[in-house]
Computed example of a mutant assay.
Amino acid sequence: MAQSKPRKMKPSEIPDFVSEIIAAGCDITAIGHDKYVLGDIEEQDAALEDLDRIGDKFGERDHLKLQIVAYLWSIGRYIELEIEGTRH
């Protein structure tokens, strides 16, 4: 029996994905310009069922990592990393 391909999230779904993560109680945040986190461990543990449901709904999203990060920056949900040796 052939296995079906896992669902891949579409770029147009990024705002809804982020909104659902926030609604689940997680503080999704971009870290620098190439990473993001769903929230701290306690938030993720408390929202485990919701996060599983959201993951099933939107599917694979690794291919959209930089686009998700860019969206988080655009809505002010980011932590800017300081480059070692520079001061602002």
Rank of each mutant, 00 (worst) to 15 (best):
M1H: 05
A2Q: 09
A2C: 01
K8L: 13
P11G: 06
P11A: 09
D16W: 03
S19M: 07
E20P: 03
A23W: 04
G25F: 09
G25S: 07
C26M: 07
T29D: 02
G32A: 06
D34C: 04
D34P: 00
D34K: 06
K35D: 11
K35W: 13
V37F: 02
V37W: 02
E43D: 10
Q44E: 15
D45A: 13
A46R: 14
A46S: 14
A46M: 13
A47P: 05
L48D: 14
L48M: 11
E49C: 03
D50P: 01
G55W: 07
D56Y: 12
D56F: 12
K57C: 13
F58M: 09
E60A: 15
R61A: 13
D62H: 15
L64M: 08
L64K: 04
K65T: 15
L66I: 09
I68H: 06
V69W: 06
A70S: 14
L72A: 01
W73G: 00
R77V: 02
I79Q: 08
I79M: 06
E80G: 03
E80I: 04
E80Q: 13
L81N: 02
L81H: 00
I83M: 07
E84D: 11
E84N: 07
E84C: 02
G85D: 12
R87A: 11
H88C: 04
